[in-house]
Amino acid sequence: MHLLGSSFVISVLIMGGLGLGFAVMLAVASKKFAVKEDPMVEKILNALPQTNCGACGFAGCHTLAEKIALKEVPVTSCLAGGQEVADTLAAALGVDAQKAKRVIAVVLCRGGQAEAAKNAVYRGDMTCAAANLVGGEKECAYACIGYADCVEACEFDAMDMNSNGLPVVFYDKCIGCGACARACPRDIIEMHPEERKLFVFCRNKDRGAQAKKVCKVACIACTICVKDCETPGGIEMKDNLAVINYDICPQNDTPAKRCPTACILYGEPEKLTREAFYSPSLPKVMGE
């Protein structure tokens, strides 16, 4: 038997040799290309929720952890974690704890089953995205469609539909991730800092008469709020819709008082959007 010359031994030698050669090459390379990672990043990452929800605006929790470690962004950047995570991170980094800036979702449509006129019966797939393709049941092309895509999108059980067919956000649970705002095909839901109290609950860009025809609580572009706002330019009329400039408009109920359709309201958004305020018998209730 010429064992040494047999293809069996040669193949074993060649495979082994190749494997060894590549192993040495990789070992050298791993030494040469070693990347040092900041241990602080891992510590921060462990404190973060690690749900990679993206509410902070970065690609994921790891990227945010790096940015926090480099002190490029404040410890309050994680919206899902809120104050608790901010305090933990502040302690870990040895910086002063800051108050977490809270952002909440606000549903900017009051035109529920009782207020909005209907011009169709929809029998398709019961999602807003599908209904939006054919216009939905309501005559108003800007109104809430009412099939709860936003409630479906919320991973924190912070939304539900009220008896008037409009979504309500529960602010004890809302973390401000913005998933509902992205799910809404008509962009009715907006994200706002929690200190804001004055909102135009309408997205209708029709002219006054048409807007009034399609919904009892639509903005009819009468410009009373524009005149009533204490700061000139605090509220502007854009495309037949009142738009609040939050940088300068004082947050009080003055502009809301004389709104003929009660679409501009002042108060806690959760209170404003709960059941009672949508009852047709109470078309004009403000705050509490």
Partner: peptide, 25 residues
């Protein structure tokens, strides 16, 4: 060495090692 039957396995070995190298780089 007349070992053409080893083509697949050696090629895969070489590719895997090269990709590791690129990854580190």
């Amino acid at each position: 060495y007349n070992l053409l039957f080893l083509q697949n396995v050696t090629f895969i070995l070489a590719i895997a090692a090269l990709v590791q190298l690129v990854e580190m780089f």
